[in-house]
Design a protein around this nucleic acid. Structure first.
Length: 477
RNA sequence: GGCGCGUUCGUCGAGCGGCCUAGGACACCACCCUCUCAAGGUGGAGAUCACGGGUUCGAAUCCCGUAUGCGCUACCA
């Protein structure tokens, strides 16, 4: 039975790297019909970020990474860690340390200055009971440190990287229990993974260096360690570990930027895992079905936003029109100019959406792409009407067009196209030039959805109004 | 400084001894389609597989060394 967990700390909002780790754990659990557990590692009271837990939960839900147990909160399990520490203390596998943070800091500085490997100098490792009593009498609250072996090696097996060996003399006596009574990551992690019967620890590469400490702790407590797999990290464009400095870090921001959860899921799965040498578009079920640890890469990956944009566009285009409209609606409501009346006319929106579905890479682009359908007056530089022709020619073209369009019996694409093509011939203008001119007058842009479809949806009166406005604007210059 | 892990086109990734004169995708360029923009189609450019030694009939693939990047080195996770 496979049991895995995602164990974020609420010291910030989850970014792509965090969520990719969650995703691999989730997929691995689902592939093996196992259990996926959510555990909040809130043992650092000083770095707690307000709302972080909510954002973690929101992010997981949005991506459909549902958990079977939890969320557990380590802050509610302090007794468990204290018991484990007591047990180690009793068996003299750990000891109380009374060194002040100031002394530790000074020690560290000195070590760095002398180019010595920084690490606790074990001053409190051999205190007599009398010395301990003196410190206690002074009211110093100690931390509990692990008694790392002074010699020997600690080997362990990593599912992705094979055998890894650490020399014990490179490990210092790390803290298990802080003076505020909270455990450090190392202790809490081991206690919980054991108690929650975690079978596989899939976590980011940055933890690899800590693993020998964890293995030593399992041994000291007489517990069987789980299997480890250290996942490649996701780097920022500067190839450094992803952090707040890299801009949009929170997953919820990707939601707000108009990415689809299914697209992000697919994209993230491919950041470090692959099915074969060509398949890139994979539905969630296919990923679950084919997922395997063997196919996880060992190399850190740089997040490539452009490729995400492309993939999001593919998913956007694969949506049914109703679904696309349903998903775009909140973005329209949110981003269309304030002057546009809310709530939006659903029927009108439904007629517009087919014109932009294949043009949007994110849902957030939809309002920009369709804004001219909603606003009353267009504002654009009249120069845009004069890129190919002189003022007089454009004015003539506009006037003739207005007159003919007024009398057009049927306001639909075939009729509009037929009349405009005839008009172009009459005016002795190339269709490209003439249509381009109309496009600017009708949409205020040089790049827009197909002209006649746009005109049909917009309607006769609004179109005529815009053509007249263009004529007047131009005549006034 | 110490320790650990990586190193295949700009980026993601295929490759796990001969199928590789290294395949795919994004981005880029050209052409086709076309009322613009997209979408789609076709083609192109882009990697001395970090470098140097081995092992082998044969190495991107195995071994060693070097370089280099990243990570860890807290009473942070």
């Amino acid at each position: 039975m496979v049991r895995v967990r995602f164990a974020p700390s609420p010291t910030g909002y989850p970014h792509l790297g965090n969520i990719r780790t969650a995703l691999f754990n989730w997929v691995f659990a689902r592939h093996n019909n196992g259990t996926f557990i959510l555990r909040i590692e809130d043992t650092d009271v000083t770095r707690l970020v307000e709302g972080a837990v909510e954002t973690i939960v929101d992010s997981l839900r949005w991506l459909g990474l549902d958990w079977d147990e939890g969320p557990y909160f380590q802050s509610q399990r302090l007794e468990l860690y204290r018991e484990a520490a007591d047990q180690l203390l009793k068996r003299e596998l750990a000891y109380r340390c009374y060194c002040s943070p100031q002394r530790l800091e000074a020690m560290r500085q000195e070590q760095i200055r002398r180019k010595q490997p920084p690490g606790y100098d074990r001053r409190c490792r051999q205190l007599t009971s009398r010395q301990r009593a003196d410190y206690e009498a002074e009211g110093i609250v100690p931390v509990v440190r692990f008694k790392s072996p002074l010699e020997g090696q600690t080997p362990f097996h990593d599912l992705l990287r094979g055998e890894i060996v650490f020399e014990n003399n490179t490990l210092d006596d790390f803290v298990l229990l802080k003076s505020d009574g909270y455990p450090t990551y190392h202790l809490a992690n081991i206690v919980d993974d054991h108690l929650m019967e975690i079978t596989h620890v899939l976590r980011a590469d940055e933890w690899l260096s800590s693993t020998p400490r964890h293995v030593l702790l399992y041994q000291a407590l007489g517990w069987q360690p789980p299997q480890f797999a250290h996942l490649p990290m996701i780097l920022g464009p500067d190839r450094a570990k992803l952090s707040k400095r890299h801009g949009a870090t929170s997953i919820t921001e990707y939601r707000d930027m108009g990415y689809l959860p299914e697209a992000l899921f697919n994209f993230l799965a491919l950041l470090g895992w692959s099915l074969d040498d060509k398949t890139e578009l994979l539905a969630r079920e296919e990923i679950v079905k084919h997922f395997s640890l063997e196919r996880i890469s060992r190399t850190a990956a740089v997040f490539n936003r452009e490729k995400l944009d492309w993939m999001n566009g593919v998913y956007l285009r694969s949506l049914s029109m109703e679904e696309f409209t349903r998903r775009a609606m909140p973005f329209l409501e949110r981003d269309l100019p304030a002057e546009v009346k809310r709530p939006l006319d659903g029927g009108y929106v439904r007629r517009i959406m087919p014109l932009v579905q294949e043009r949007a890479r994110t849902l957030a682009e939809v309002p920009q792409l369709t804004q001219f359908f909603f606003v009353d007056g267009l504002s654009y530089d009249t120069e845009m009407l004069l890129t190919k022709l002189g003022q007089a020619e454009v004015l003539t073209a506009l006037r003739v067009t207005i007159a003919r369009l007024k009398e057009l019996p049927n306001w639909d694409v075939p009729s509009l196209e037929a009349i405009c093509r005839a008009l172009a011939e009459e005016l002795e203008l190339k269709t490209g030039v003439f249509f381009g001119l109309l496009r600017v007058a009708v949409t205020g842009r040089t790049a827009a959805p197909p002209l006649f479809q746009t005109m049909e949806v917009l309607g006769r009166e609004p179109c005529l109004k815009r053509l007249k406005a263009a004529e007047q604007k131009l005549a006034a210059t």
